[in-house]
């Protein structure tokens, strides 16, 4: 269970990215986070694993107050929360296998990992994760030799290495063409259903929201303006979320 209470983020330049946002996510849900660019979706996701420090408010997750922990405890919490990025954020000059293994850094002996040593079990797990997203044959390629869709699959494999209980996906398909987008979304859906991993996924296209998510929350200028099932997003709600000038497609 993820519980967010009165979450507010004000950046140093005065931009209010999140304003008093509260909502709850029961375990196992696939939550789509929607809203215009700059509405605070990325900030919300990054506040949850504290890549961005919230200004005020609480984030509770399975009995841990995520907004309060620091140091070792924060790292322990983070390793159970996988993250997938719009621009994949792979280390281009490293091999695919190394990129995937790096998902394991929160678990391994720090000294051994710095020397590049991973336990045999982790290497097996890395190959299994790659096989799961269908690119085990690329394990020894350099990450920048892969296509966009393949790179995002490496990103998913890296997140899987964390044995996550929750996955935060920040616009995972915004840099991909529509055909690939569905393939990536299906992988996320499969992970959500088979492994019972909660997924929070920010999305731009409403058809993807309708097709894959079990629930949607919407942000507009940092405020929560919608919380319900995707089907509840009617034309009226749509204007509330995206503003009057937006046009509904898909």
């Amino acid at each position: 269970m993820l519980k967010i209470q009165n979450l507010t983020k004000v950046y140093e330049d005065g931009t209010v990215a999140l304003k008093d946002v509260s909502f709850e996510v029961p375990d196992g849900e696939f939550v789509a986070v929607i809203g215009l660019s700059g509405s605070g979706k990325s900030t919300l996701l990054r506040c949850i694993n504290r890549l961005i420090e919230p200004t005020s408010g609480q984030i509770w997750w399975n009995g841990i107050e995520l907004s309060e922990v620091s140091g070792e405890e924060l790292r322990r919490a983070r390793r159970q929360i996988g993250m997938i990025f719009q621009h994949f954020n792979l280390v281009n000059r490293s091999s695919v296998l190394t990129n995937v293994l790096s998902g394991r850094l929160g678990y391994t002996n720090p000294l051994a990992s710095i020397l590049g040593r991973f336990p045999e079990a982790d290497i097996k797990r890395a190959h299994a994760s790659l096989a799961r997203v269908g690119i085990d044959d690329k394990a020894d390629n350099r990450a920048d030799e892969l296509s966009g869709g393949q790179r995002q699959r490496v990103g998913i494999a890296r997140a899987l290495m964390q044995e996550p209980k929750m996955i935060l996906a920040d616009e995972p398909v915004a840099s991909l063409d529509p055909a690939l987008a569905h393939s990536i979304m299906r992988h996320l859906q499969q992970i959500n259903k088979e492994d019972k991993i909660t997924v929070l996924c920010s999305l731009h296209f409403l058809d993807l929201v309708q097709q894959y998510s079990t629930r949607a929350i919407a942000l507009n200028q940092g405020k929560l303006v919608f919380d319900g099932t995707p089907k509840e997003i009617n034309d009226e709600k749509f204007i509330e979320i995206y503003g009057r000038e937006a046009e509904r497609i898909g």
């Binding site: 694993n49 890549l51 996988g82 994949f88 280390v91 790096s102 990992s113």
Partner: peptide, 21 residues
Amino acid sequence: EGPVEAITATGANQLQRIVYA
């Protein structure tokens, strides 16, 4: 900064972040 962010999100410590990202 992308890879640094990604490695941080896995629960890596500062030294691991430097070595891997």
